[in-house]
C-alpha cells in the first residue's frame, strides 16, 4: 500500500494565449485554463502505482483562482480526493510561496509515502516545485523521471539526463517529478466522471495553514511579461499536391535556401 500525493497546477493554456497587439502583454484572461500538462502525467503515474500496489491518491492544488471543474477532472481520472487552497493572495506567489503553501497543505492530508508532480509547469517551466517540496520535507527528490518502479525498500527511477538514462534508487518518502515521456494520461469514462461528483474536495483556507508572513511573501516579483516577436511572412500556399510541390521547390531554389 502506498499513499500518494499528486500536485496539480492550474495554468492558462499557453497554446491559446494571444499577445495584446500593442502592449505585447499576454491576454491571460481570454485564454482557457487547464491542468498543467506534466501534472496529468504525474496523476496518471500515481494511479498506475495505486492499481498495482493499492493505497490512495490525493490531489493537492493551490492557486489564486482554482476552478472546481478542473479538480473534478482529476477526480474523474481516478484520484480519491482533493485538497484545495484558492486565495486571491496567491496571484503574486513565486516558487517559494507556492512550495510553502503546498507543503503546509500536504501536512493537512496526513500520511503519505510519495509526492508526484510534473517536472515543470506549462506556464513557468521553472522545474522548481518538486525540489523545493523535497527540501522542505528533507527527503530525496528525483526530477526527469521517465519510469518508476516501487520496491520493498524504496523506489527505483529511470531519470533522463543529458548523456542518457540514470537509474537511481531513493528511500521513501520521496518526491518524483515526471515528464511527458513517462505515460499517456487516461481519458475518464462517463462512469468515472459521474463517480467523481461524489468524491470529496476539501477546501482549506490559506489562514488555516499557519504560515508566517515571511513564508507568504514572494521573493521574486514579475515586473513585466512581453511577447517575443518573430516576424514571419505567413504566405499560404494551397492547391493540388503537384502544384504545391512545384511551387515549393521553386521557392527553395529561388530564395537560395538549397544549393545546386
Amino acid at each position: 500500500m502506498v499513499d500518494i500525493i499528486v500536485c496539480l497546477k492550474q495554468t492558462v493554456d499557453v497554446n491559446q494565449v494571444r499577445p495584446h497587439p500593442e502592449t505585447l502583454e499576454p491576454q491571460l484572461g481570454q485564454a482557457p485554463r487547464k491542468i498543467s500538462d506534466f501534472d496529468l502525467n504525474a496523476l496518471e503515474e500515481a494511479l498506475r502505482i495505486k492499481e498495482k500496489h493499492g493505497g490512495r491518491v490525493v490531489a493537492v492544488c493551490v492557486g489564486h483562482d482554482i476552478q472546481q471543474l478542473l479538480i473534478r477532472e482529476a477526480l474523474a481520472m481516478g484520484a480519491d480526493e482533493a485538497y484545495v487552497v484558492s486565495d486571491p493572495r496567491l496571484e503574486k506567489a513565486d516558487g517559494l510561496v507556492t512550495a510553502e503553501v503546498l507543503a503546509a497543505l500536504i501536512r493537512k492530508v496526513g500520511r503519505w509515502d510519495l509526492i508526484l508532480c510534473g517536472e515543470a509547469s506549462l506556464d513557468e517551466s521553472a522545474y522548481q516545485t518538486g525540489p523545493r517540496l523535497a527540501e522542505i520535507f528533507n527527503i530525496p527528490h528525483i526530477t526527469y523521471a521517465v519510469r518508476v518502479e516501487l520496491e520493498d525498500s524504496g523506489v527505483k527511477v529511470w531519470k533522463a539526463m543529458e548523456g542518457g538514462i540514470h537509474v537511481v534508487k531513493a528511500s521513501l518518502p520521496a518526491v518524483l517529478a515526471v515528464g511527458l515521456e513517462i505515460n499517456t494520461p487516461r481519458l475518464p469514462s462517463l462512469l468515472m466522471i459521474r463517480a467523481a461528483s461524489k468524491k470529496p474536495i476539501h477546501e482549506v483556507k490559506l489562514s488555516e495553514l499557519g504560515l508566517s508572513e515571511e513564508q507568504l511573501t514572494p521573493a521574486v516579483e514579475t515586473l513585466q511579461v512581453k511577447a517575443l516577436k518573430v516576424e514571419r511572412r505567413r504566405i499560404t500556399l494551397e492547391g493540388e499536391p503537384e502544384e504545391l510541390a512545384q511551387k515549393l521547390a521553386e521557392i527553395l531554389v529561388q530564395e537560395g535556401l538549397v544549393k545546386k
Binding site: 513557468e124 521553472a126 522548481q128
Partner: peptide, 20 residues
C-alpha cells in the same frame, strides 16, 4: 539538467527566490 534540480533546492534551503 542537474543544475535545474540543484538550484531550486538550494534556494529553498536558503529560503529565497529562484529564477530558472
Amino acid at each position: 539538467r542537474l543544475g535545474r534540480e540543484v538550484a531550486p533546492r538550494t534556494a529553498q534551503r536558503l529560503k529565497t527566490g529562484y529564477a530558472a
